[in-house]
Amino acid sequence: MSEAAPITRQDAVQALYSAIEEAAGLLEVEYAREDVLRVLNLYGGDLTQAVVAFRVATGARRSGELDCRFTVPHDLDPYQLAVDNGLLEKTDHPVSRLLADLRDNCPVDGYGIDFGVVGGFKKIWVVLPRTALQEVTKLAGLPSMPRSLGESLDFIARHGLGDTVGLLGIDYRHRTVNIYFGEPPAGGIAPESVRSMLREIDQAEPSEQMLRLGRQAFGVYVTLNWDSPAVERICFAVATTDPASLPVELDERIGMFVRHVRRADPDTKFVYAVASQPDGEYYKLQSYYRWGSGVPEIMQLPDGALADPV
């Protein structure tokens, strides 16, 4: 789809739906057409200009899903829109107040939404300005933030994960929050550091693949919930224009998706990530259906990260 071609909102919705349909067919993911179109029509006000990405993941619990995420108009309340239209249930849980707390206490550059073609609406992304990254200690003090962020400040500092945050992902289905550090350690995370931090939060011993990705990571994030004082998992992400060039063996499902995407657009950008779990890590690949000039800011990519990809 040419970015220069004048297209209407409905054209953009139909084009993205067609791309979802093709990818889901390749991955043998069964879904309800009406449910996907409902999300696209509700949030697609800026879809002609939005940054759009797909994500696939490994593991039995994730193999039957295809995620789509895209940026949405800055002037809407993405959480209230989801509740008003039955995509999320209204709840008294702190997760329902976190977006408002962030908006009231921090400068916000923009929002994104994340939905599974099978599982429905999942996350809201909150993008903070690259010129106004927020201190982790400040975010830990927000009333609705999981207390595990405050409880983990020493852990974050000791392992050098970062002092500031540039992006947050609020998962309403699983009631978790992803905290993306704005200034990851230069040169990635050393293998001994990866082993140490995972051991400290009772995660599985990392594989050699995970250690290699940690060393090359441009981004690090932690997942927190409201039921535990500890970090739930840690994720390391690398940016690339060719996942096959990474020093890892791609999962069969991810490899198939990469080949499909690169046939359509050989210049597609990817983010490949590994996430820890108590019972073993899993991998996920994000491909960009539409890239935009703001993506490096959203992702907190260092200058040249994709000009000289890993």
Rank of each mutant, 00 (worst) to 15 (best):
G187F: 06
Q203L: 04
T176D: 07
F181P: 05
H174G: 08
R195W: 08
M210N: 07
A217G: 02
R215P: 01
L198M: 14
E192K: 11
M210V: 05
Y180G: 06
P184A: 04
E192C: 07
G214K: 02
R199K: 13
G214W: 00
L211Q: 01
L211H: 01
R215N: 00
M210Q: 12
Y172K: 01
R212A: 11
H174N: 13
L213K: 05
P206S: 10
A217M: 03
D202K: 15
L198D: 07
R173L: 11
R173D: 03
A190R: 15
I201C: 11
A217R: 00
G214P: 00
A190S: 13
R212H: 10
R212G: 03
S207K: 00
G182I: 06
R195I: 06
R215Y: 03
L211E: 05
G214E: 02
M210S: 09
L198F: 15
M210Y: 13
R173I: 04
I189S: 02
G182S: 12
L198G: 08
I201K: 05
Y180W: 11
V177L: 14
F181W: 13
T176I: 07
R199F: 10
A217Y: 02
E192F: 03
R173W: 07
R212C: 03
Y180A: 10
D202P: 06
P185V: 07
A186L: 13
Y180M: 08
H174M: 13
A190N: 11
Y172W: 02
E208G: 12
A217T: 03
I179N: 04
F181A: 08
G187C: 12
A204E: 09
E205H: 15
N178T: 00
M197Q: 08
R173H: 08
T176K: 15
V177T: 04
A204D: 09
F181I: 04
P184K: 12
E200F: 14
R212D: 01
Y180K: 04
V177A: 05
E183R: 15
L211T: 04
E192Q: 12
S207R: 00
A217D: 01
P206V: 06
Q209L: 09
P184L: 03
R215V: 00
E200T: 09
A190G: 10
R175E: 09
D202C: 11
G187K: 15
T176M: 13
I201T: 05
G182L: 14
R175K: 15
E200V: 10
A204R: 13
F218A: 11
M197S: 06
F181Q: 05
